[in-house]
């Protein structure tokens, strides 16, 4: 009998084990829901699967009576738009400021402490300021995401840029590169996959800030909808929305990982050799 740490599940076993917790949760939910519904068939806390189906049918495949829109898709579109705008803007800021900070000591000296200070401000605490300054429109919500994750991304990119071996920067200079060329040919391409990795890590925070902003001031969006129907205790809508958001977050993460693997194979091969 091998030691426990040396026993590795096979492919099928791994798959089954991976699905198991999900199935367990479902079964538990079904049991609890059935028990509650048997006691009181109007119970709203743990709706049955048929009421989920009804809610999904209503939200996704029937036009809204008032606006004529398909609400789920409309909410999804506006949330994803805000999210990608916030993420994209943050990534761009991180790329520019982070690389400049990492490459040029005279940029780093004034900016690095400042950005560290900014990153320590709790973004939710200045949400009211954002609404006052940027109004209740799209901009405030996007800005909340940016203020929430950009400082983290900038600091991370700066750190990664500083971690690139000095030998490479020296080598580039002996090959005739000036500062700008070192940035575009040595630092930028090596930072990109690392930036993608930290964007993936910040996805959770980005969703958090998005939903918080939507909950407070919006007229559509996944977060807005959840907080709206909460008033009617509509668990049959809230739970499918939560599952949908989770699925979207997972897909986004997956796509970013695929892009990184496709565009920067040398980076992932390097990591693998380092791990072995």
């Amino acid at each position: 009998m091998k030691k426990l740490i040396n026993r590795v599940p096979g492919r099928t076993a791994r798959w089954i084990l991976g699905v198991l917790p999900f199935v367990l949760c479902l079964v538990l939910y079904l049991a609890a829901s059935n028990a509650r519904l048997a006691e009181n068939e109007n119970d709203k806390l743990l709706p049955s699967f048929s009421s989920f189906a009804g809610a999904i049918e209503r939200m996704a495949f029937t036009p809204d009576k008032r606006s004529g829109n398909y609400l789920l898709w409309q909410d999804t579109a506006s949330s994803l738009w805000r999210l990608s705008l916030g993420l994209g803007l943050s990534a761009l800021l991180a790329l520019v400021i982070g690389i400049l900070n990492g490459a040029i000591p005279y940029m780093r000296a004034p900016l690095s402490p400042f950005i560290t200070a900014i990153s320590l401000i709790p973004p939710m605490a200045i949400l009211p300021i954002l609404f006052i300054v940027f109004g209740l429109g799209e901009l405030a919500k996007v800005m909340l995401i940016v203020i929430g994750i950009a400082p983290f991304l900038i600091r991370d990119v700066q750190q990664r840029a500083l971690e690139i071996p000095a030998e490479q920067l020296i080598k580039a200079q002996t090959l005739g590169a000036n500062t700008w060329q070192i940035i575009v040919r040595v630092l930028f391409p090596q930072i990109m996959p690392r930036l993608l990795a930290s964007v993936r890590l910040s996805l959770g925070a980005a969703w958090l800030f998005l939903i918080a902003a939507e909950a407070i001031a919006a007229t559509e969006g996944l977060g807005y909808r959840i907080f709206l129907v909460r008033r009617y205790l509509a668990m049959d809508v809230i739970l499918p929305y939560v599952v949908w958001i989770t699925l979207l977050a997972f897909l986004l993460d997956y796509v970013l990982r695929k892009i990184s693997r496709m565009c920067y194979p040398w980076f992932h091969a390097q990591i693998q050799t380092a791990e072995n």
Binding site: P165, E167, Q168, K171, A172, P189, Q190, W266, Q270
Partner: peptide
């Protein structure tokens, strides 16, 4: 150098 002399990307 002894190592890190070429660009990995």
């Amino acid at each position: 150098f002894q190592r890190y002399s070429v660009f990995p990307h």
